[in-house]
Simulated scan of single mutants.
Amino acid sequence: MNRLMVFLDAIRDHLDSHALPPACSVEVTTWAAPVTVALDADTMPGVVAGLATWAVTLDGARVSLWRTPDGARVQLELSGRTPCGIPVRVYGGVPFDPSTFPDLPPPTDQELPVWLLREWARAGEAAA
C-alpha cells in the first residue's frame, strides 16, 4: 500500500473514532504535514472549541497562534499526531480583537499552552 493510502486510511479512522467538529477542508499529502484540517468555524469560541476537541485526540498536541502581516486576522493552529503516528495540523482563523490579543502585534507568532486553549473553550471566550 502506498503512503497516501496509509494517511487517508489513518485520518478516516481517526475521524470515525471521535466526535470531531466540522471541517471545511481536509488535505492529505505524503510530504511536510501529511494531514491538514481547516475548521469550519470563524469565531473565537468556535475555533477554540474545535481545537480543544481535536487536542484530546492527538498525541503531543501543541498550539500556536499568529497574527497576519496586515493585522486583520489571527490564526490558531494545533499540531500533533494521531495515535498511529500520522502528523496532523488543525487550524482556524478569527478576526483580530485587541481585547482578546492585547500583546500580539502583526506579524507575530507565539506558542500557546494547550491548557489555556481548553480554558478558553470551557469559558466560551478567549483572553490573552
Rank of each mutant, 00 (worst) to 15 (best):
L8I: 09
T36C: 07
L20H: 05
L8K: 15
P34A: 08
S64N: 11
R73T: 13
V28G: 03
T57Y: 10
N2C: 12
F7R: 11
L39I: 00
R62V: 12
V56P: 02
T36N: 08
D42G: 11
G50P: 07
L15S: 12
I11H: 04
A10R: 07
R12C: 06
P34H: 06
A52C: 10
L20S: 05
T30C: 12
G85D: 05
I86K: 09
L20G: 04
W31C: 06
T43D: 06
W66H: 14
T53H: 06
V47L: 03
D13M: 03
R81S: 12
S25P: 00
T53R: 11
D109P: 00
A23Q: 09
L65N: 03
M1Q: 12
T68N: 08
V56D: 13
P113Q: 10
G92F: 02
L20Y: 05
F101T: 00
P22C: 06
V114N: 03
L65I: 08
W31V: 14
E77S: 15
G93A: 15
Q75P: 04
A123H: 07
M44D: 02
T36Q: 11
W120D: 03
S64G: 14
V28Y: 06
M1A: 12
V47S: 02
N2A: 12
W66M: 03
V37C: 03
V88H: 01
R118L: 09
E111N: 15
S99T: 12
V63Y: 07
R89I: 11
D103L: 10
P107S: 13
L58T: 02
A123F: 06
L15R: 13
P21R: 03
S64W: 09
T43K: 08
L4S: 09
Y91Q: 10
V94P: 02
T36M: 10
L20W: 02
D40H: 13
D13R: 13
A49K: 09
W120V: 02
T68I: 04
G93L: 03
V74R: 01
A52I: 04
I86V: 15
W120K: 00
E77A: 15
G50V: 01
V35A: 06
P102K: 04
L15M: 14
R89Q: 14
P21C: 04
A72M: 11
A41C: 05
E125Q: 14
W54R: 01
A72Y: 14
P95C: 05
A41E: 08
P45G: 03
I11Q: 02
E125G: 14
R62Q: 15
R3F: 08
P113T: 10
L117S: 02
A38T: 12
A33L: 10
A19E: 14
L76A: 06
L20M: 11
M44F: 04
D42I: 02
L116W: 07
V94R: 00
G92N: 05
F96A: 05
P98K: 03
P83M: 07
W31D: 11
D59W: 11
